[in-house]
């Protein structure tokens, strides 16, 4: 189970959260001008990297707020957590490579790169 550091509530079990897929997918600014190919891209095509992935999570049974997280989809290491509306922070996975294979896991690593301190940051 993932231990997810909610930017509002601190680290909580994954079972408190719901997944929201890829982050930073804006609604088209010019919907009337999109062709079928562009609508298909918006509706059905998402990034699916093996490595760092910016994704949305909802803390459903906690603060009930959406937030963003950068997580490595191969190691499941959480590299950054940030609030909605904030840009994706630049993250360096443990070891400095493009993808961590044997980096540290657990809550201490999970907090690396978190912009706002999640500990005790309850509103």
């Amino acid at each position: 189970m993932l231990l997810i550091p909610c930017p509002h509530c601190g680290p909580r079990d994954e079972t408190e959260f719901h997944y929201g897929g890829q982050a930073h997918v804006p609604y088209p600014g010019n919907p009337n001008e999109l062709d079928d190919r562009q609508w298909a891209e918006f509706l059905f095509y998402r990034e699916n990297p093996k490595g760092a992935f910016a994704e949305r999570w909802l803390h459903s049974t906690g603060c009930r707020q959406w937030f963003n997280m950068v997580r490595d989809t191969a190691t499941y290491d959480i590299q950054a957590v940030y609030r909605m509306g904030e840009p994706r922070p630049t993250t360096t996975p443990p070891g400095g490579g493009s993808r961590a294979t044997g980096g540290p896991t657990g809550p201490s690593a999970a907090h690396a790169g978190t912009p706002a301190s999640p500990e005790g940051a309850r509103p």
Partner: peptide, 13 residues
């Protein structure tokens, strides 16, 4: 498992 993953493992719950 709900999240994207290539890890060939999932969450225990």
């Amino acid at each position: 498992d709900s999240y994207n993953g290539y890890g060939q493992r999932g969450s225990f719950h």
